[in-house]
Amino acid sequence: MELVIFVITAIVAIIGAVAMLTSRNAVHSALFLLLNFGAIAVLYLLLQAPFLFAVQLIVYAGAIIVLFLFVVMLLGAERDEEDANPIRWQAPVAITMAVLLIGEIIWVLVRQSQDGLARVGSSDSDFGSPAQIAQALFTTHLLPFEVASFVLLTALIGVVVLHQRRS
């Protein structure tokens, strides 16, 4: 059952990612990215992270992609790659490197899958519940939490300043 869900979700995620990569239209790309993010959110559920599932949907699906769509629509920048590619040698090199990278990762994974990726510890049914997350977030990781709030504030102020109308 879990395998079935995983395979379906993984295929959806990969299709979403590849389609995002190849789509000519930025709006389509954003929607495919949304598909991908949704799939990843489902994977979070499989991985005992219901809280992150919700956060993923709220933040990525509910805010970030909407923002992308918003900007694309506002600017009318759906098709912005019509002109000729000035650096033609980039694509073959990039693809080669990407293949090399995934080769390396697979190499590592295959070598590590015997011992390094074995499951540690027993499964706790409460693992990843909001209560546990809150416990960790507001005790052990309180300082990063506060810092993150400041990062957000800074981003907020930065955006406001960027778009202030100068007379």
Partner: peptide, 27 residues
């Protein structure tokens, strides 16, 4: 990895990554 190690730290990390990603996208 959080699931594999049964440790919440990685999930917290994800939480922060999402936060920073949101800020990054906004700016």
């Amino acid at each position: 990895f959080a699931n594999q190690r049964q440790s919440l730290d990685a999930q917290i990390m994800v939480f922060f990554v999402i936060t920073i990603a949101a800020a990054e996208v906004a700016v």
